[in-house]
């Protein structure tokens, strides 16, 4: 499979009142077509910034971001994005919010087919019956799920999820992992998932990228492979446990809480 997302030596700094704040410094990432990369790292290290670079919402100061072998020059309609802060347009119903991308992205679907698709996705994430509610009537976790539907509605080629399940209880979260798997089977996409949940990362992704503390560089890449745990039961197998240990250790290094030396036995 060919490489779909390629990031090489990206450096980026925010210009703040107190001077430039370097956020990314030497970041590399490569995701094959149909692949799914999870990105983990300490809070505030630059993960959300990375998603904005891939989506073309920002340009890096240095380095390159490529999609499909083309440098990213700006946002494109083939990207679906669920933001860390799942803002909904309060003046629209949940259904209308989910359908919003279809008003921008050219689509062959008729109006009623668009509605049908949005309803189908809402049902998948367990929001059946909330289609005509206003966002203010939903809980934070429900809004996150609706925002996931909005990211998926136009069948994006690249799906970027920034901590999409952060506000959910553990059980709903595990249900949605399974749902996301099923969606990917039915409508293949190339994914980037930002998460703080290591179990989530090895359950959903085929590679886990650990970023160092700010300014972030790619510190470690764990190849979960296609044999990764694709069933909740598999999260409790020795293989999965070894991966979690490995990642745990890398996170501690990233946080500066562990010496870099004793290289943990890689599970890959």
């Amino acid at each position: 499979m060919s490489e779909l997302i390629a990031i090489r030596g990206v450096r980026h700094a925010y210009r703040t009142k107190a001077g430039p704040l370097p956020v990314l410094d030497g970041l590399d990432l490569s995701v094959a077509e149909g692949g799914f990369a999870a990105v983990v790292g300490p809070s505030g290290c630059g993960k959300s910034t990375l998603t904005k670079l891939i989506a073309g919402l920002m340009k890096p100061d240095e380095g390159e971001v490529w999609l499909h072998g083309e440098p990213v020059r700006g946002p494109r309609a083939t990207v679906g994005m669920a933001f860390q802060n799942p803002v909904m347009l309060e003046w629209r119903t949940i259904l209308q919010n989910v359908m919003l991308p279809l008003e921008i992205v050219p689509t062959r679907l008729s109006r009623s087919e668009q509605q049908e698709r949005a309803r189908y996705l809402l049902a998948l994430v367990g929001l059946e019956g909330f289609e005509d509610k206003r966002p203010s009537e939903l809980s934070g976790g429900m809004r996150q799920r609706a925002s996931l539907c909005r990211a998926l509605v136009h069948q994006p080629e690249v799906l970027i999820l920034d901590e999409p399940f952060g506000a959910l209880d553990a059980f709903t979260r595990e249900d949605l992992w399974q749902t996301l798997h099923d969606v990917k089977e039915a409508e293949p996409f190339t994914g980037v998932l930002i998460t703080h949940d290591l179990r989530e990362s090895i359950f959903l992704a085929d590679q886990v990228v650990v970023l160092s503390g700010r300014p972030a560089h790619t510190q470690y890449v764990l190849d979960v492979g296609l044999s990764g745990p694709r069933d909740l039961e598999h999260l409790y197998t020795p293989g999965a446990t070894a991966m979690l240990h490995d990642l745990r250790h890398q996170i501690e290094i990233a946080q500066g809480r562990a010496p870099e030396e004793p290289a943990a036995p890689s599970a890959a």
Partner: peptide
Amino acid sequence: EPEYRDILRSLGA
């Protein structure tokens, strides 16, 4: 808030 703008901007609107 930039978040609002980004919903549509990320689609190339």
